[in-house]
Amino acid sequence: MPSKLFGLIVCTLAAGGCALTDQSRHTKTSDVPPCFAAPEIVIPTARASYIATGTYEVPDDIRGILLTKQSAKYVSLPWIAEAILKGPVQEVSSFQVWSQDNSLSRLLGKSDEAVVVFLVSVPRKSVTYHLLNSPAAVQAVDELLLANVHHEIERQALIVSRWQPDRDLPFYTDVEKLISKLSVVDGAKQQRVFDELIELGTPAIPAIIDQMDNRAQLRTSYVRLSNQHSDSFEAYRQYSPELVVDAIAAILNHQTGEYFGSIYNGDEDDQRDATVAGWRVYAHDLKCSKA
């Protein structure tokens, strides 16, 4: 990578971790515009838990699996990171891809090239990283892309750090009353609260996001959402959320089709934090699209 690009990188491996470079350290928050400059990377940046430059390999045996698409499974690609833009400082040495992903031709074509990857963490016994399901997940490194990604990471961090409740949002008090019930009702009554939140409709989504970060324990670890796709095998999607925030994330996915982490069946608090942050960026940018 050309040396002049390193001023755009948030974390460099050569520096021993996530130390801000001179350029990013001196960036004034007032210089970061409130709305996005590169809309095509907004959602991928918000969804990704790890963004980095580097190279990956597609071993011959894996290449055969990916080309034939005969096996439906995750396969691991070796990854050598050069610079971390977002995510953990610990080494990520591989990432998983779905063998029947429709974008595999693009992935195969960039093997051994310098790329930017957008990955999501999947907590299991040990954390693994999966390639984000997005056309933007693997892109050739260039100066403009790195500048846009760096800017977007800073912009989103600014949105999250400055987040304040907004009681003037439409349906704010309606949402507040419904969410307050979720720590005291259970069973069918709890499901009815979820249904009433959905029935408030699209105009209530910003108010739901505004109040979603509620870590109260649900009395019944269950939410049922109707499948809206005509080709669905089942009439409902069913999850086992542990906390109010888990269920609200599922409801927002149901209403918008977007997702910022699958915490619908419960998860660790850091995953919940990341999901809430992603939804706050989404809510902020709804205002941008209306401006």
Rank of each mutant, 00 (worst) to 15 (best):
C288W: 11
C11R: 01
V10R: 15
V42Y: 05
I263M: 13
I84F: 01
P203C: 06
V127A: 09
A147R: 07
P88C: 04
Y259T: 12
L85F: 13
S30D: 14
D267S: 15
A188Y: 01
I263H: 08
F6H: 10
H284A: 15
V58Y: 04
P2L: 08
Q255R: 07
K4N: 11
A250W: 02
R280C: 05
L5V: 06
E176T: 03
G187F: 00
T173L: 11
G257Q: 13
K69I: 04
E196W: 00
A247W: 02
E91K: 14
H254K: 03
Q255Y: 00
R47K: 15
A19S: 12
V175S: 00
G109K: 04
I80P: 01
A38E: 14
V276W: 03
D273R: 13
A188G: 00
G16C: 11
A136Q: 15
L243N: 06
H130V: 09
Y56C: 07
G16W: 00
Y239R: 09
V244F: 04
T128V: 13
T29E: 11
Q190I: 03
P44I: 01
S121P: 11
V184K: 03
Q90E: 10
S71A: 12
P2N: 12
L178W: 02
D285A: 05
G87S: 04
K110Y: 13
D186A: 08
L119V: 03
T21D: 03
P135V: 09
A204N: 02
S76V: 08
V184C: 01
E196A: 03
T29S: 12
S262E: 10
K110E: 07
S240E: 14
I41N: 05
V175C: 00
G87H: 03
A15W: 06
G278M: 09
D246N: 08
P39L: 06
C35P: 01
S94R: 15
S126P: 03
A46C: 10
P123H: 06
I263N: 05
N133P: 05
I80T: 15
E196F: 00
T45C: 12
D267F: 14
A207T: 01
L119N: 04
L252W: 04
I208A: 07
P78G: 03
Y129K: 10
I9L: 08
G261R: 01
F95S: 09
S226W: 04
S240C: 07
F233I: 08
L145H: 04
R162A: 09
